[in-house]
């Protein structure tokens, strides 16, 4: 059992987390934050490994991981 949280106000929509999540659990939200970025969202399907790959690659330190 693991999950991530994403700071959607800090997210710039670079999508690196989507590239590196081995389970494809992060998706573009289709919404915009205050800085005008189409931020990403975590789709919790109970499959998150807690591998921290998304958090390691996030250039804006938006992701925290729980396991």
């Amino acid at each position: 059992m693991a999950k991530i949280t994403i700071d959607s106000e800090k997210c710039k929509g670079c999508l690196l987390c989507i590239t590196f999540c081995p389970k494809g659990l992060i998706k573009v939200s289709g919404k915009f934050n205050k800085r005008g970025a189409d931020f990403v969202e975590f789709k919790d399907s109970g499959e998150c490994l807690g591998c921290v790959q998304c958090a390691i690659m996030c250039p804006d330190c938006c992701i925290e991981v729980y396991k």
């Binding site: 999950k3 921290v52 992701i63 991981v65 729980y66 396991k67």
Partner: peptide, 12 residues
């Protein structure tokens, strides 16, 4: 659940 990846204190 325990936090296993957190924002560093030295980064604002």
């Amino acid at each position: 659940m325990k936090k296993i990846f957190s924002h560093p204190v030295s980064l604002r």
